[in-house]
Amino acid sequence: MGAGVVSTWTIHARRFEANAATREPTWLKGVLITIALLFFGLFLLLPLATVFAEAFRKGWAVYFAALVEPDARSAMMLTLLVAAIAVPLNLVFGVTAAWAIAKFNFRGKQLLTTLIDLPFSVSPVIAGLIYVLIFGAQGWFGPWLIEHDVQIIFAVPGLVLATIFVTFPFVARELIPLMEAQGREEEEAAIVLGASGWKTFWYVTLPNIKWGLIYGVVLCNARAMGEFGAVSVVSGHIRGRTNTLPLHVEILYNEYQFAAAFAVASLLALLALLTLVLKSFVEWQGRRSMHHSQEASEVIS
C-alpha cells in the first residue's frame, strides 16, 4: 500500500494533478469522475438505500415488531452463537498457520498457502454440500450419528462447520504477508536474549501484527454473520431453531412479508456498514503505525 497517513493520500493525487506532464485534460477528468460516481451510485448507494427505504416503508411500528418477534430474536442469538464459535477457531488457526509459514522455510510452503485460500474459490453451496455428504443421513457417518442420536446436519453443529469453512482463510491470509514482511529478526533477538517462545509471541510478535489481526477478525466476523449459501444447505430452515439472520430474511421474503424481511436485512446492512467503518479505522491505524516505524528506522539509520 502507499506510504503514509490520511494527508499523504490526498497529496499523492494532488502531485499528479499539479504536474502538466501527468495531468489529464479537465473534460476527461470530469468524464471519468462522472462515470465512477454513476457506477458507484447505481451499484453501491442505491441498493444500500433501498434496504432502509423498504424497511421503513410501513413505519417504525412494523419495523420494530419485525425485530423483536421471537423467531427474529432466536435468529439473532443463533447468528451470534455461530460467529462466536467459528471466528475464534479461525483466529487461532490463522495465527498458527501464519507463524509456521512466515517464520520458517520448508518445502511445499507455496502449496500450503494456496490450499489455505481454497475455501474462497469454492462455491458456498458446495461448502454446505460437503458436510451433508459426510454427516447427513446418507453420509459417511450418517448411520453412526443416527444410532447415537447426534444431529449435525439440520442442526447447529452443521451451521458452525459450514461457517468455519467459508471464513477459514480470512485471518491467515491477512497475517501471512504481514508477518513475512516483518521478518524474524525481532523474534530471534528476543529468544537469544532469553525470552520463552510464548513471551516472544506475546510481547514481540503480537504488538507488531495487532492491526492486521483485528482487520482479519473484522472481515471474518462479517462473513460469519452474513453467510447465506453454505448455511442454507445445512440448515433445514427450522424456524426458531436453525435459522440464522440471513436465512430468516429469506423466509420472510418468500412469505411476501417484505417490510419485515427488509427490517431484518437492515440490521445486517448496519453490521456491514459497521464492518466498513472498523475496517477503514484499522487500515488508518495500520498505515500510521507503519509510518511511525518507518520514521523510527530512518532516524536510527
Binding site: 499528479f16 469522475i33 440471513p246
Partner: peptide
C-alpha cells in the same frame, strides 16, 4: 488514486460494501 474530489474517502470505504453486505441482503435489495 489520481483525482481529488469531495467525498472520496467515504466512496473508497464503501467500495468494499459487496464484501461486507450479506449476499441475501444484496439479493433482495437489488
Amino acid at each position: 488514486v489520481r483525482y481529488h474530489f469531495p467525498g472520496k474517502r467515504i466512496i473508497d470505504a464503501l467500495v468494499d460494501l459487496p464484501f461486507a453486505l450479506p449476499t441475501a441482503v444484496a439479493g433482495i435489495a437489488l
